[in-house]
Design a protein around this nucleic acid. Structure first.
Lengths: 126, 126
DNA sequence: TGATAAAATAGTAATAGTTACTATTATTAA
DNA sequence: TTAATAATAGTAACTATTACTATTTTATCA
C-alpha cells in the first residue's frame, strides 16, 4: 500500500472526531483540501477498516459511522440528539456464551444496539 | 383506512413466509397479480408496520426484512446461508436494566444482532 | 536524478433500496 | 349511483455508496 496524503488526513479525522460519517469526514477536510473527492473518502474509509486501523459502526436504517476506538464496545443512539455514544457493556461475552448454549448455535459476532437518551439530553429533561 | 386487496395479499404473504424482504413479497405475489406494483408493496409494508400488524427487521448494511411474529425476539443472521432466524433470548430485559443502571441512561429499545451458523448449516459442517 | 511501474486520486456515472409523485381506479358512505 | 376519498400502477427521484477511467502521485532502482 502506497502512502497518500488524503488517506492520512482521513485517518486523522476519524481518530480525532466522534463517530463521523463519510460525509462528515469529507466536509471536515474539503475546506482546507478543496480538491478532495468524496469517493476518495469512501474508498479510504473502507481500506482503513479492512486494515483494522479504524472500525465501521453499521446501524440499521442509517448511514455508516466510523470509529477510531478499536477495543470492543457497543453504541447508544440517542433518541433526542441522534448522536452516537460509546457504551462499555461488560456482559457481552457471557451473553454470547449463553446464546450458544441455549440455542445450540455457533456465534461469530454479537452486536447490541441501544436506543435511549444520552447523558446530555437527560440533563436537558431534568 | 380503506380496504385493498393488495394490502390483504401483502399482509398474508408476510404472515405466511419467513422474514421476506419487500422484493420477496413482490415476487411472490406478482405471479398471480401481474398488475401489482413494487411501490404498493413498500407502501403497504410501511403501513402495516405503522399499524403494528407486522414488524420490520432492520439489519445493518442490509435490506429490510419483515416479520409476522409480533412478540419480542431477536434474530440470527446465518454466516453460511444468510437466512434470518428467530431467537428467543431471555436475558434482554435484565440486560436493559443493567445498562440503565451501569451507564446511567434511559434505554428505550435494545436490539441484538447475532451472527453465526444456523442449525441447518451446522448440520452440513458436521 | 530521472524513467518507469504501480497505486491512488478526482470527477463522474452507476447502483441498490426505497420513497415520492401523479393520473387513474377502487372503495365506501349517503 | 353518485360523490368523496383513499389506494393503486407506473414512473421519477432520492440517498448512501460503489465502480469506472483518465490523470496524478508515490515508490523503486538503474
Amino acid at each position: 500500500m502506497k502512502y497518500s496524503k488524503q488517506r492520512e488526513l482521513i485517518k486523522q479525522t476519524v481518530l480525532n472526531s466522534s463517530h463521523p460519517t463519510a460525509e462528515d469526514v469529507y466536509l471536515t477536510l474539503v475546506e482546507d483540501n478543496p480538491q478532495l473527492s468524496l469517493g476518495t473518502v469512501y474508498r479510504n474509509l473502507n481500506t482503513l477498516c479492512d486494515k483494522g486501523v479504524i472500525k465501521r459502526v453499521a446501524i440499521p436504517n442509517s448511514k455508516d459511522y466510523f470509529d477510531g476506538i478499536l477495543s470492543e464496545h457497543q453504541h447508544l443512539i440517542c433518541d433526542k440528539c441522534h448522536n452516537i455514544f460509546d457504551l462499555d457493556v461488560k456482559a457481552m461475552d457471557e451473553l454470547a456464551d449463553k446464546i450458544e448454549k441455549d440455542q445450540g448455535i455457533k456465534v461469530s459476532s454479537l452486536q447490541l444496539f441501544v436506543k435511549g437518551v444520552c447523558h446530555n439530553c437527560q440533563k436537558d429533561i431534568d
